[in-house]
Write a protein that binds this DNA or RNA. Structure first.
Lengths: 226, 226
DNA sequence: TATAGTATTATCAAATTGTTAACGCCATGC
DNA sequence: GCATGGCGTTAACAATTTGATAATACTATA
């Protein structure tokens, strides 16, 4: 496969680095590696990768710091960033996502999961035209202008909040939206509603869509995936 | 593809100029380039392009200034103008749109986004031009010049506001018009009328047309659909 | 198995729209 | 000038839809 996509991987464990690199290269990705946060930052600026995978625990700058630095630079505003975390490290996971990452992978990393995630992310990025206001993901079509949603050309009627919520999640497929993030985007900072409210709307969407495309990330939030 | 549309691109970075030019030419557009604001202004007057893409940051006159100058000339009143801006530069974006641009593109520019945007703009222009005359949707015919509506060759008498409202909604079938949008388009920004007013007119249209073609999108607005 | 987090459901409150009637305005014809 | 009728607007109320919450059940994880 020839994708032409560049991926930067930063991790202080050489083994992991090697495994990931090998698998991604086999898939046709161009891979650059870094052994610590500072090297990651430098190489990111130099190679301008399409996707950056950052281990959170690294000597020097940790992954979250690197992410924050990168996101300050306009060139990296749209770059995909994924964190690699040790399992059960929920707090840092959340901090990571708050600092603007698109997703995270928990160690130990299975090559299968890794590849499907990476492939899926790129597939979705390409199919996401944030341009016309129409988002098409597989057979699902979300038209912001016409305010309607259709699956396989079949119209689905969503209430406003449901539409906004789905629309938000689908605007960045694969990205995990924190509950706070969702509240801010859809309800604004002034209105205060309970946590269950989101669940209920998610439920309604799932019900109406009859499609398993919204994944719960326990303790964090929700994400859209096909 | 042969469109015959002329496009003028102004940017001081030769690389960007070249990329855009290449992509647009591939699509069949005729492209003229300019390296700075003054040159852009001169070439615009000389070639009378259908679309002008202006980088905002340019030596000499910047894009906004050029836009303002152009808009003062009647020939450019209807010309499409797009700004090219550096990412996350919201203030200038807004100023740009205020100075009469039709849209803007943020750098780095993806060829895909560029083309879809340009194509979409021309499509829009073409379709709105048809709007000035007669709109036919199914068996419904709306004649803006004669100011009358007929369904299956049967004339329907609508009052002026009713006509304008129907005409507006039908100008973009499927698109949801926000209540504010409707107020702005039909009543203008200065007149202030209550919310029920729209409803009442919608009701009258529905009544007279005896046709289920106006859909309510609760909390949002109305749309026309056959 | 206890716990934290999420799903589900029913219910009620709130927001939004539909409908009707009434009022004032203006152009028209008498 | 004065009555008339159509039009645009508003008010008042009814009908509908939507949103939020609480209570409860479920589920994955430690």
């Amino acid at each position: 496969m020839q994708t032409g996509k560049k991926i930067l991987i930063a991790d202080d464990e050489p083994d992991i680095l090697e495994i990931i690199q090998f698998n991604l290269q086999t898939e046709g990705y161009e891979v650059v590696t870094a052994k610590n946060g500072d090297e990651a930052f430098e190489k990111a600026k130099k190679f301008l990768p399409d996707l950056i995978m950052l281990d959170i625990m690294m000597p020097g700058k940790n992954g979250i710091e690197v992410c924050n630095l990168l996101r300050k630079l306009p060139v990296f505003a749209e770059t995909l960033i994924i964190f690699l975390t040790a399992m059960s490290d929920e707090n840092t996971e959340i901090k990571g996502l708050e600092s603007g990452a698109d997703d995270y992978l928990t160690k130990p990393i299975s090559p299968k999961v890794l590849l499907s995630k990476v492939n899926a992310l790129f597939r979705r990025i390409n199919s996401t035209k944030q341009d016309t206001g129409v988002v098409v993901i597989g057979d699902l079509k979300i038209d912001r202008e016409k305010y309607n949603v259709s699956y396989k050309s079949e119209d689905i009627v969503l209430a406003r909040k449901e539409f906004e919520l789905l629309s938000l999640l689908a605007s960045k497929p694969g990205k995990v939206f924190l509950r706070n993030e969702i509240l801010n985007q859809i309800w604004g900072t002034e209105v205060i509603v309970g946590d269950r409210t989101i669940d209920v709307h998610i439920r309604k969407i799932r019900q109406k869509l009859d499609l398993d495309c919204i994944t719960t990330v326990k303790g964090v939030g929700y994400k859209f995936e096909m």
